[in-house]
Amino acid sequence: MNRRLTPLVALLLMLAGAVIMVYPYAYMVGSSLKTRREFAQDKEGLIPPRFEVGEQLKHRRGEPSALDWPGGDWPPWQNYADAISFGKVDRYLGNSLMYGVVITAMQLLLDVLAAYAFARFEFRGKRLLFGLLLATMMVPPAVLLIPNFLVVRELGLVDTAWGVMLPGFAGAFGIFLLRQAFLNIPAELEQAARIDGCGSTGILWHVILPLSKPALITLGLFTFMGAWNMFEWPLVVLSDHNYYPLTVGLSLFRAETGADWPRIFAASTMGAAPLILLFLAAQRYLVGGISLSGIKV
């Protein structure tokens, strides 16, 4: 009896937990459909009052209802449209995408090259350089915030797109991950290619890369997500709002008195959705990648 019950109990508990995980998202989306007055009057509900059956009936009977409030005639997507037209959220989203794509591309490029060197070559100072790389991973980002700003300032890149992206172009994490993947490729294949006349770049291109696709995809996804979710660094480095990624744009949306929360939630939904879609499409790489990176490092 116990044997059959446990999976069922576990399932129920997991379902309960899943509801807890998803509830804030439902709250966000539901609030993004409300008007300002609706949100002020009803902070808790998931459904905008003007769409509730009870309110609709009251309105039809001619009684005062939520549809009489300012914005009672708005369609559900009004806040999304306003966020784009007034709030210029499309600009921020486009920026987030640009930063994500460029940082990912550069990281993949640079990390592949460096990991190849560590995995397939012997050279003087290899242990030292590897140790240094390891050391860079030990530094908490909070310590690096100020000096990175000063470095970027010296380079004249403050308040530019490059300034936002540059520190993200190389990461020890990615080098380690790829090195691990490269080391797993048998040396015979490399020798075979060398016999065929490939130089080191040829081996990289024809042998190593094709065989490490999963690791590359995993790293690419991780990097893209990390870049999309960047907040403190662009907050510090940027002041021109045309360069803000969505995270910074959101945080400054509400700096006015009496913030328009439904509109903010609409922008938030638009900021969270792309990554969720990406995740759904590429789950196995991400989840697999975490296990890979988490334990083996």
Binding site: L93, G94, L97, M98, Y243, Y244
Partner: peptide
């Protein structure tokens, strides 16, 4: 889709300005 989003991005808009 990506190209469209990039086109509307603030960075591109700023270059245009």
């Amino acid at each position: 889709v990506c190209l469209g989003a990039l086109w509307r991005s603030g960075v591109v808009w700023a270059w245009g300005m």
